[in-house]
Amino acid sequence: MNTLQVWVVRTLLKNTTIILFLLLFVGFGLLAPNFLSLRNLEIIISNASYIGIIAVGMTFVLLTGGIDLSVGSVMYVSAVVVGLLIENYDFSIAAALMVGFLAGLAFGLFNAVVITLLGIPPFIATLVTMIAGRGVGLLLTRSAAVDFPDELTMLSAVRVFGIQLNIFIFALVVLAATVFLMLTASGRRLYAVGNDPEAARKAGINATALIAMTYVISGGCAALAGFVSISQLGRVNAGFGMGDEFDAIAAAVLGGASLFGGVGTAFPGTVLGTIMIQMVQAGLVFIRVDLYIQPIVMGGIIFFAVFLDSFRRVQLKKLERRNIMRLSDS
């Protein structure tokens, strides 16, 4: 291969997320012209916002090579806490939201302690929180649905600077995450920890604290996502948030985050991944595909993205393998 070809292949492989995104975008646009309307895009992003918020928190966890399966349950418990406080204890909405958010952080802290101090693998620790967390939520509600007052559901119609509130919150979360990850010392050290935890400890980085922090962040994001979701639904039933952990992981991975740690971004990566999932779902509706086929297509696309990612890793390794002979030799 000549240098130009190498460059082209490398560039394509390094930008699979955005290329896939554009392909899908243009593809649906051609199949259904009004798919590309501004209004429709707003709906897509609005629908993507709550999974997106979880996925940003998940990105932090994935960066350390961990995983958080508990976010769906944490979302449920936080929402339940808010609802019960308002309904039974006359809390103001703001105070209830605050306590609910703290509940999310507390679950994250529990994960963090179990993983970093007790040494339990993240998969098992957060699986336990996923099961037991939902159990706690059901215990609080006696498995009944919780309704929320209109003041809360009206929030979903609020616009900030002309942007829907949920999109605005999503954007704020993404902005904060990106600033933290890209511009602060702790953010860059998080990447270091994900790349090589042992070397990070040797370099005097408090890897344990950083890893613990990511689970707390993930718990907080899950709670926040729960609030965004209840403002849209107005009601929380026993299955609220169930399975969302997998969507969030899929979104982050689709956005280029690696399950092995050290690779991934909140923006553009995870944002694109989340919107892509929502775009496919909306696009399939636009081109009138059987609703039952949607999850099948979704699965296919995520599989394809992960396949490309693995293929890319192998290919990049080959391209970056050191040439022993000078290129002119061979």
Binding site: R188, Y191, G204, I205
Partner: peptide, 13 residues
């Protein structure tokens, strides 16, 4: 840390 830049590696501590 191979995923960071030279400058970031130098000043990581």
């Amino acid at each position: 840390f191979t995923n960071l830049t030279i400058a970031e590696n130098i000043f990581i501590e």
